[in-house]
């Protein structure tokens, strides 16, 4: 299999399989980190000092250290230190470990964005609701929430597009995502070896996907542009 045209279908298939795993990690991270981030945000804004300082310290540590280290710790720590390989050795175990590290890491980033969004809504909005006799719930859901969402859409879209590319870090624990799949053709796989173009070709997937996300987010921003905050 020497010609590019012979190699291409094989590589394309392998990369698709890898990208599916990338997508799964991306989706699971969002599903977990978006709500967990809100909890962390409330924790860090709590008036109960011990809670808020613990939460803020966690956020500082997680945001202040490389995601790659966090991946390695989550994956290897239980087996090497606690002597129980809770994740198991297979692809499934690697995926769970990667998901936990990604969700925790991104939840911390999201929590800070949420905090900025909540604190960015002027206090006068809440007071205007109060003097009209509205309850805290009504004020949050009917007044503050949408203004907060509008504020966080741009930073969230940045963060989510970063996540698309960050998923490749899971390569470090040999999760079989798209980079792993592309690299396999350097060492040798399915009769193809010594090829670097499949690895370069993975970039196309990232480009296309982040391009689609960029378009979706700008649509959302446009949808919310009927009012100013």
């Amino acid at each position: 299999m020497n010609t590019f045209f012979e190699q291409f279908p094989i590589v394309f298939n392998a990369l698709n399989v890898g990208f599916l795993q990338t997508m799964k990690l991306f989706a699971v991270t969002l599903l977990g980190a978006i709500p967990l981030g809100l909890l962390i945000c409330f924790g860090s804004m709590s008036r109960f000092k011990p809670l808020s300082s613990v939460v803020r310290t966690i956020v500082w540590v997680v945001r202040g250290s490389p995601l790659m280290i966090q991946l390695l710790i989550v994956y290897y720590f239980p087996g090497l230190v606690l002597k129980t390989a809770i994740w198991g050795g297979g692809e499934h175990g690697r995926f769970i470990a990667a998901s936990i590290a990604f969700i925790l890491n991104y939840a911390c980033y999201f929590s800070e964005i949420y905090r900025g969004g909540i604190q960015g809504v002027p206090h006068g909005q809440q007071e205007a609701g109060q003097v009209l006799g509205l309850s805290r719930r009504q004020i949050f859901f009917k007044i503050t929430l949408l203004q907060m969402i509008k504020r966080i859409v741009p930073p969230m879209s940045n963060e989510i597009i970063t996540l698309v590319k960050d998923t490749s870090l899971a390569r470090i624990i040999a999760l079989q995502e798209i980079i792993w799949a592309g690299q396999a053709f350097m060492k040798g796989s399915q009769g193809i070896s010594g090829q670097i173009w499949p690895l370069f070709f993975t970039a196309v997937y990232y480009l296309v996907f982040s391009g689609i996300l960029t378009i979706l987010f700008s649509k959302l921003e446009k949808k919310l542009s009927y009012f100013k905050v």
Binding site: G124, Q125, E127, A128, V131, I143, L146, Q147, F227, K228
Partner: peptide, 11 residues
């Protein structure tokens, strides 16, 4: 109460 800076709900 009518506020100095209106505080209308923008959305």
């Amino acid at each position: 109460l009518v506020f100095q800076n209106f505080n209308l709900f923008p959305q």
